[in-house]
């Protein structure tokens, strides 16, 4: 039986996918703006952010309406509850892209960070893409891959951060540019965190398990018989 509710849930999924598509475009544009020093692309990022913000308000309301009017349970409940958490994660990714775009005039060319900067941006962009694909296709394996990849991005971030610090110590004239690059890499690293959060929500939708803060969920070792 096809329910009217199912089409409303599909509208929610479609809305999330559209919003995610917009921030993926923002990620590409901000990466290109920094690489090319393109003010036009940086402006495009800011323009898209407005659309993402509008979409956030619309989808928030859609979720509240579905909760109030449909009283969802089981997978339907998990989808809507997690959507309410995924929506602000996507919106924050848009904000980070704007932060990167704003720094373009002060950070271009990002030569101090070398190829590692492109690598970091590429890894982060891949994580967002995978998290969205995991949501769209209901792919738990892909969601787990995203979560695992976050460590790689963290390592890369620390490595670039140290390189920039060394560059500033060696040449005080590059402090301003390097400081802006540090802010930019922090934004890339935060975007990867947001992708990880989305992947965690995807696992909750698909499997009903909460994988956040896994250290809190570890069971104490079995003391064994007689203890």
């Amino acid at each position: 039986m096809v329910r009217h509710f199912d089409s409303e849930l599909q509208d929610l999924r479609d809305g999330l996918m559209a919003m995610a598509g917009q921030v993926e475009e923002m990620i590409e544009l901000s990466q290109a703006a920094l690489r090319e020093g393109s003010a036009a692309k940086a402006e495009q990022v800011k323009a898209l952010d407005r659309l993402v913000d509008e979409q956030e308000l619309k989808l928030d309301q859609a979720c509240i309406d579905l909760l109030a009017l449909q009283a969802p349970i089981a997978t339907d409940l998990r989808l809507i509850a997690s959507s309410l958490k995924i929506i602000p994660e996507i919106e924050r990714i848009g904000d980070h892209c704007c932060n990167i775009a704003r720094r373009v005039p002060f950070a271009h060319p990002p030569v101090l960070a070398g190829d590692a900067m492109e690598h970091l941006a590429g890894e982060t962009r891949g994580m967002v893409r995978q998290a969205v694909d995991a949501f769209v296709n209901g792919n738990a394996g892909l969601a787990r891959e995203v979560i695992a990849n976050d460590d790689r991005v963290d390592t890369l971030y620390v490595q670039i951060y140290k390189d920039l610090l060394r560059a500033m110590l060696a040449d005080p004239l590059c402090i301003e540019r390097a400081s802006n690059l540090i802010i930019i890499i922090k934004n890339w690293e935060r975007i990867a965190d947001q992708a990880t959060n989305i992947a965690e929500e995807v696992l909750f939708i698909l499997e009903g398990v909460n994988v956040k803060h896994s250290y809190l969920q570890e069971k104490p070792p079995d003391p064994g018989p007689g203890a």
Binding site: M1, I73, T75, D76, L77
Partner: peptide, 18 residues
């Protein structure tokens, strides 16, 4: 049962799919 039922039949019933 109402957040993560084990059986597909349960899921389909409680969510109104049959």
């Amino acid at each position: 049962m109402f957040t993560n039922p084990k059986e597909r039949t349960t899921e389909d019933y409680i969510t109104g799919r049959f």
